[in-house]
């Protein structure tokens, strides 16, 4: 059923539509937007997107909810203290690793 040419065609169509979605607004809209509502909307979009993508998905990003919660708390705490992206990210990973390592003893 799924021959190489067919799979190739699937892949190519996926790639094309995904690229067009990314490219068209970015290439066509090159003049600054002056409308205050649209500018406000675009200003809030990143925070809205990131918020929606992070929670609750973060709770299921590791092997267990417990380690994920500890990782999340680590990240939130360090971000509040003004630490950078890499520090926060690696610390969260380390916290998850540590919690899951400790859990192996129980």
């Amino acid at each position: 059923m799924n021959t190489y040419p067919m799979l190739f065609l699937y892949t190519l169509s996926m790639a094309c539509v995904t690229y067009l979605i990314r490219m068209l607004p970015f290439v066509l809209l090159r003049r600054p937007i002056r409308n205050r509502f649209i500018r406000s909307f675009l200003y809030y979009v990143p925070y809205a997107v990131l918020g929606a993508m992070t929670f609750p998905a973060i709770l299921y990003a590791t092997s267990g909810v417990l380690s994920a919660v500890i990782g999340l708390l680590t990240a939130v705490l360090l971000s509040f203290l003004g630490k950078g992206l890499l520090t926060v990210s690696i610390s969260a990973c380390a916290a998850v690793y540590a919690v899951e390592w400790v859990c192996t003893f129980f």
């Binding site: 990131l50 990003a61 999340l72 680590t74 990240a75 630490k83 992206l85 926060v88 990210s89």
Partner: peptide, 16 residues
């Protein structure tokens, strides 16, 4: 498993 949280940790650091 630990690497799985890396991206989200970054998101948190961006929005907080």
């Amino acid at each position: 498993s630990a690497l799985g949280i890396a991206i989200y940790g970054m998101f948190v650091a961006i929005v907080i």
